[in-house]
């Protein structure tokens, strides 16, 4: 017993722990977004459709921009809105660091590999600019996306998608998938944690692989079983293949105004 415990404590991070950590991270993230999105704040009070369209306009502006100033403007506007909506600094910092690390590694060689005017140490001016563009764009767009999901309950976001002509069936698929993601995460965590605690020491790689694959296999069998039972539950309540949904109330004048200003503003900024 104590030997098993010893092994557990001293085991280096294996695939089980990493997978568990990632699954737990998704749960955490959705939970904190849910808390924040239902609290009070500037963006929390805005119609989700406006937020969705607004975020779309900002992301498109950032994606289309040929000027670093405009990218900076999108970034600053978004961060200001984030603070007015009580987004935690730590959360934004985590996002930025992970984005910069990922894209930074990709952008770095561009400093040297892009042909153009040399600046010294093998760096070219074009390379420097290209790397800056990439990072600025990624930073701006990912911040917009993150602020949107942190300030909008996800089911409101789902309903907002329907307002923008996404087919009902797509919205229903996304909604149902989202709902069952959490069930599968829970099931997987239960399965892996059960195995984790049962394992005394580190298994040979081959067996660890077999274990991971068996987990996936069990999950898949469950998925099929679950889907046929859900099918019955849907039928039992009158489902005949077409999904029907409630209509949304029309947008208010104020909402249209916000969107028009945003759209015109970004149009002008891009044109210049």
């Amino acid at each position: 017993m104590s030997e098993g415990l010893h092994h557990l404590v001293h085991r280096r991070k294996g695939f089980l722990d990493r997978t568990l950590a990632e699954l737990a991270h998704v749960l955490d993230r959705s939970f904190s977004a849910e808390l924040l999105s239902t609290s009070s704040g500037l963006l929390q009070g805005i119609d989700p459709r406006v937020k969705l369209a607004g975020a779309g306009i900002l992301i498109l502006t950032a994606a289309a921009s040929r000027s670093l100033w405009l990218l900076a403007a999108v970034f600053v506007v978004t961060v200001t809105l984030a603070f007015a909506s009580h987004l935690k600094v730590r959360e934004l910092l985590t996002l930025w660091i992970s984005v910069l690390l990922f894209s930074g590694v990709i952008a770095l060689p561009a400093l040297f590999l892009t042909p153009g005017q040399p600046l010294g140490w093998g760096v070219t001016k074009q390379g420097l600019q290209a790397a800056t563009f990439l990072l600025a764009r990624v930073l701006a767009t990912s911040t917009v996306g993150s602020v949107l999901v942190s300030t909008t309950p996800w089911n409101h976001l789902l309903r907002a998608m329907r307002a923008f002509r996404l087919p009902v069936v797509a919205v229903v698929l996304i909604g149902m998938t989202y709902r069952y993601i959490f069930l599968f995460i829970q099931t997987t965590m239960d399965m892996l944690e059960g195995r984790q605690s049962r394992l005394a020491g580190e298994l040979p790689a081959k067996e660890r692989r077999a274990m991971a694959l068996a987990t996936v296999g069990v999950l898949m069998s469950k998925a099929f079983e679950l889907s046929s039972d859900i099918h019955l539950a849907m039928q039992s309540r009158g489902y005949r293949g077409e999904v029907h949904a409630l209509d949304e109330s029309p947008l208010r004048v104020r909402d249209w105004a916000i969107l028009s200003i945003l759209a015109v503003g970004s149009g002008v900024a891009l044109w210049r």
């Binding site: 990493r18 997978t19 229903v172 149902m176 998938t177 069952y180 993601i181 599968f184 692989r209 991971a212």
Partner: peptide
């Protein structure tokens, strides 16, 4: 609807597996 949804949820979780 149920088959595609449940299978996508399954795929989502698979994408998080560390093999």
């Amino acid at each position: 609807v149920p088959l595609i949804s449940v299978f996508s949820a399954f795929s989502f979780v698979i994408m998080m597996f560390n093999l």
